[in-house]
């Protein structure tokens, strides 16, 4: 860039903002997000009541041009609702190119969008930025991974959709023995259980040494459903402290990938 933007904290451009839009939409369960541009890529993080942390991660190679100044931290809070609306300003049927600029701390984030099919129109957005709140540090260095599953996202989504909507709690049993995975929910008068052996088609890989039982709030688990709907593969990791980490790979034809990631805190009542 030689038009005087080289001193900007952060600039980036991509041919189509559509995938980014659907990725952000998938984690948009809160009004604002923490926007963080690192040299490896762009990350937006949303938190729900200190229990769920969701991030959208866009590696730098998704951008046709990507520049972050390395002597400063590019991190701020932004309305993710406004950001997604702006990305979609020309509607879902239109592919539009996207440019992003962030001059310096306290400046608004500038977006410039132009549809690929029509050249006589463009949109520019100035979105206000705020100082970022502290994000939860959920990763515990001492905790070890006790189980790792790789699942097909669409099948896992179908499974979650089958769970009773009125339930609050979901129990996840993982074991090296058959059935390897069982998901139990308790309703008013019933107990339902879904069992998935590791030989199942939806299971691409399964590793678990010791049987574990973990409880999660079902509404928290449901937050990942939108992201599952647009993803192809999900990696589910349980750590010894019960923290559930889900890493989702976005469905895309090209080589370049985008990801979303969810950390979900367990219910610890009787453990």
């Amino acid at each position: 860039m030689d038009d005087g933007t080289s001193q900007y904290y952060f600039t980036a451009s991509m041919d189509s903002g559509k995938t980014l839009h659907s990725l952000l939409k998938a984690i948009q369960f809160q009004e604002s997000a923490v926007f963080c541009a690192m040299s490896e890529g762009l990350k937006l993080t949303v938190e729900e009541g200190k229990c769920v942390q969701a991030s959208a991660y866009v590696p730098a190679d998704n951008f046709t041009e990507y520049h972050v100044r390395d002597d400063v931290d590019v991190i701020f809070k932004i309305s993710i609702a406004v950001l997604t609306e702006c990305l979609n300003i020309f509607g879902a049927s239109e592919e539009s190119s996207l440019k992003m600029y962030y001059r310096s701390e306290g400046s608004p984030l500038l977006l410039v969008l132009q549809p690929q099919s029509v050249h006589t129109v463009m949109t520019d957005c100035e979105i206000a930025t705020q100082t970022a709140d502290c994000l939860l540090e959920l990763r515990d260095e001492d905790a070890t991974e006790v189980a790792k599953l790789v699942l097909k996202a669409s099948a896992f989504l179908g499974l979650l959709a089958d769970l009773e909507r009125s339930c609050d709690v979901m129990e996840l049993h993982l074991s090296p023995d058959h059935p390897n995975v069982s998901i139990v929910t308790y309703g008013m008068q019933d107990r339902s259980c879904i069992e998935v052996p590791k030989s199942s088609d939806m299971m691409q890989s399964f590793s678990c040494e010791q049987p574990v039982t973990l409880k999660y709030q079902l509404p928290h688990i449901r937050l990942i459903m939108k992201a599952l709907a647009i993803s192809s593969k999900v990696v589910l990791r349980c750590s010894s402290n019960g923290l559930l980490l889900l890493q989702l790979k976005l469905e895309k034809d090209e080589q370049r990938q985008m990801f979303s990631e969810f950390h979900i805190v367990p219910l610890l009542d009787d453990y």
Binding site: S79, V82, T123, D124, A128
Partner: peptide, 13 residues
Amino acid sequence: TDMAKVSTRFKDL
């Protein structure tokens, strides 16, 4: 708005 300023410009009309 407090959050954002968005302008869509059409030209050659």
